[in-house]
Design a protein around this nucleic acid. Structure first.
Lengths: 253, 253
DNA sequence: TAGTGGTCTAGACCACTGA
DNA sequence: CAGTGGTCTAGACCACTAC
């Protein structure tokens, strides 16, 4: 089963063997693997070696361990697909923003909590918003839930010059959300840009999004621009990578 | 330094302490952390406990370990930004495809190896390409390098009915790449769609892309459609998440 | 209560790096 | 060569799950 003279670390051999059996279908998604103590017998190695092998598979997102229950092949999460059409004015007219529009389309019960605060812009925010570091920005910190489960974190920043006296500085921005309030104030949105990346979550994000080991987050920074090109809003979103796929479409040329 | 009666696992406390010192700037990017044996003294715990703490930070992408040298704060990688304009016909006219256009813009020396093969479409490919599973597709398997380093993997699939008799079935597709050959054959491209996700790399991807622990990959599936809506090509790309950011822009409405 | 994974110790030897 | 991280053992006790 394992070759201790091959030079390849034994725990890697065990991990490779288990990975093969899983991809071959010997253990299906959701199935329980043998217990660690059973694997000690099977492979003839110490418990730590087994646990190192399982640690590799956890980091790859292949298995999940549950204390007191066992080790299981990770079942695939249901993927939600997001496309940019959710930002259309037509959707805004009927709903309260992009997230509620998604909920209506995908059939889950949405909820969200918002905290509003004001702070000086940092280097990065100033760069995206075309203002000076230290200029005051309105910050809307949102946690979005689907059927009670946290599925998305979003931090929106706007130069305060655009939000003073509007409902954007309130917890409830009203029908159509912040973008609708901006347009009412004469700031018609001209175009959007989204910057997409990925990384491992911070411990705070991992617990907020209830992420298991081996699940990255997708980061999306959306910047909304006025028709004259002035940046109006920067929105930093963090999505669990096992539950989201983003779709972008555009005409050739 | 650590509280063994708090109920919080000691290795998590050590990881949290190191993480704090790193974010506080006590250890800057590229700095060497104390050796494992030094930390045994500092924290008064066994070596395994220290190594478990470091394993957490490695999985988060916060530190990298180098055998025989030490543990280092991960230095930030230089980010390459990709925007959809690289797919314009204007860029194609002067270059050999999107990757070479990027190279010209960003100033690195590109190289790539291609393998061409033919195989029956699987379920997923058939779905994206609007054909039947089992129908023959032309597969172009590409490894792209910047200054000798592998930076991108791409697998392109086209229904063979569109590629027969064209240079798309050759290793060298000629000036402008496969898209230029398609248009010459009368298949004018109408629009593109890109589906973006993220996950941890497979062991094969991790070694090909020389990914350290704690670095996810960004997956991009691009589908090119003819003006009448017929899918022409599906391109599965795998990018190291620490070196790429994708940008999409579009007009409001 | 039995079985599971989670945490931790003390010690050993190996492989790699750099002076 | 000394110092570093990588691998592995044998054993112990704890915390959680499920019957």
């Amino acid at each position: 089963m394992v070759d201790k003279t091959s030079g390849v670390p034994v725990h890697r051999q065990v991990a490779a063997d288990l990975r093969e059996r899983i991809t071959a279908g010997e253990y299906a998604p959701g199935d329980k693997l043998p217990s660690e103590r059973a694997m000690i017998e099977t492979y003839g190695v110490s418990r730590l070696t087994i646990r190192e092998a399982l640690s590799i598979l956890r980091a790859e997102g292949v298995v999940v361990t549950e204390h007191g229950r066992g080790v299981f092949v990770r079942p695939p999460a249901s993927i939600q697909r997001l496309s940019r059409s959710r930002l259309s004015r037509a959707a805004r007219a009927e709903n309260k923003g992009a997230f509620l529009a998604d909920a209506a389309a995908q059939g889950f019960t949405p909820s969200s909590s918002v905290r509003v605060r004001f702070e000086p812009a940092d280097e990065r925010a100033a760069g995206h918003l075309g203002i000076q570091p230290g200029d005051e920005v309105t910050v809307r910190d949102r946690v979005m839930r689907a059927d009670g489960l946290v599925v998305q974190l979003a931090v929106s920043r706007l130069p305060r010059t655009f939000t003073r006296g509007t409902a954007i500085e309130e917890v409830d921005t009203g029908p159509g959300g912040a973008y609708a309030r901006l347009e009412e104030a004469g700031h018609t949105i001209g175009h959007y840009a989204e910057h997409v990346g990925s990384r491992m979550p911070t411990p705070e994000e991992a617990s907020a999004l209830q992420l298991g080991q081996g699940i990255p987050v997708i980061t999306v920074t959306r910047v909304a621009y006025r028709e004259d090109g002035t940046p109006l809003e920067m929105n930093d979103m963090v999505l669990p990578a096992d539950r989201y796929e983003l779709t972008y479409e555009w005409a050739a040329e």
